[in-house]
Each structure stands twice: as C-alpha cells, then as structure tokens.
C-alpha cells in the first residue's frame, strides 16, 4: 500500500520546512533584545494553552500568534507560533502532533504578517474573521497527518469525514480566536507596536555623535 509512505514523507517534509526556517533565522543579524522579545511572546502564546488545556480549542495562542505576525512580520510570527507549540508541549507532552502544531501556528503567524502588513491599522472585525478561519485551518492541518496515516482510501470524502470528526473542537477554537480578537485584538496590537518601536531604537555610537558635532 504505497499511501503509507506518504505519512513518513509528509512528516519529513514538515520537519525539514521547520528546520529550514530556523536555519535561515540563525543566519540573520538579530539583536539580543529581539530574541528575548520573540521568546517572551512565544512563552506567552504557549502559556495560553497550559491553563486552558482541559477545554480543547479554548486558548489565546492563535490570536496572539496572528497579532505578533501582523506587528513584527511573517518571520517573527512564524517563530513565535512554532516556538510556542514546541515549548508548551514540553509541559503538555510531545507527540506526533508537535511538528504539525509548530507548522500550523507558524503559518498562522506568517498569515498575520502578510495581510495588512503595510498599513498601521488593525481592522478588528477583519482579524476576528481571520482568527475564526484559522481555527478551522489549524484543525485541518492537524487532521492531515491522521488522515494520510490511518485512513484509507485517501479521497476528498474521507478527508471531509476526518475533518467533521473534530469539527466541534475546531469551532470552539475558531470562536475563541474571534472573541479574543474582538475584545483584545486592537489593544494587543497597539502594545506590541509600542514595544516594536522601542526595539528599533539602538544606543547612539560615539562615531555618530562626533559626526553630528562636525555638522
């Protein structure tokens, strides 16, 4: 049954994609404060999963990842989302779901970073809609591996059946994303923007000061 190779192949592809992004991040010049901010945001996003772990789907993680992506850009959004998934699973338990969660939340960060990136605005209802959609997209990405590994035949019908099996959790996730976005979205975006502005201030070097004096 050749379809079973798809499972390992997809798992390898997911891990390779994650490794490629982290390797690319390694080669960028990045200020220590930026690493600390990304780590803190990832911890905050991951923390949201721990107290709400008993209620599947209800957590502010996707909401925070989307807002981080919107404010700090797609790369930071991806790193916040994927690191949040990995670190929170150190407390909740790693499993075959870890690479898919890392990828799904990472892509949510990229999505938040790509849309409305240039405009310094936060359309609350648009982002609420995006959070709602991401509640379902996240579920589909998570179900994908289960579908190709444990279900046969791999048809649209069987994929829809796999999605429908978890639709309740996905709906809960989508609703919580939309609600967090409506009640906290603009404020969270404003707070993050303020810290982003602070990140872009660097200590003035002596050379710059001397240059100014000469002028």
């Amino acid at each position: 049954m050749s379809t079973t190779y798809l499972s390992l192949f997809s798992l390898i592809m997911a891990v390779t994609a994650l490794a490629a992004v982290y390797l690319w991040y390694e080669r960028r010049r990045i200020a220590p404060a930026e690493i600390a901010v990304i780590a803190t945001l990832a911890a905050l996003a991951g923390l949201g999963r721990v107290p709400f772990a008993a209620v599947p789907g209800l957590q502010p993680t996707t909401f925070l990842v989307l807002v981080c992506g919107h404010v700090f850009g797609p790369v930071a959004g991806f790193l916040v989302g994927s690191t949040a998934a990995f670190t929170s699973n150190l407390f909740l338990g790693q499993g075959p779901w870890t690479p898919w969660q890392m990828l799904a939340w990472g892509l949510a960060g990229v999505c938040g970073g790509v849309i409305f990136r240039k405009k310094k605005m936060f359309p609350r209802w648009f982002f609420a809609g995006m959070g709602f959609i991401w509640g379902f997209v996240f579920g589909w990405i998570m179900n994908f591996w289960h579908w190709i590994t444990f279900v046969y035949p791999l048809t649209i019908q069987s994929f829809i059946a796999t999605i429908l099996a978890g639709i309740g959790f996905d709906f809960m996730h989508a609703m919580s994303n939309a609600l967090f976005m409506v009640f906290l979205g603009p404020e969270a975006a404003e707070i993050l923007r303020r810290f982003k502005r602070r990140l872009s201030f660097y200590p003035i070097s002596e050379k710059t000061v001397q240059g100014k004096k000469e002028d």
Binding site: I35, I38, A39, T40, A42, A43, L44, T83, T87, L90
Partner: peptide, 8 residues
Amino acid sequence: LVALATKT
C-alpha cells in the same frame, strides 16, 4: 530562543 521561552 527555545530555552528562554521554556524558562519563561
């Protein structure tokens, strides 16, 4: 990054 996030 992971170590910082984990301890946080």
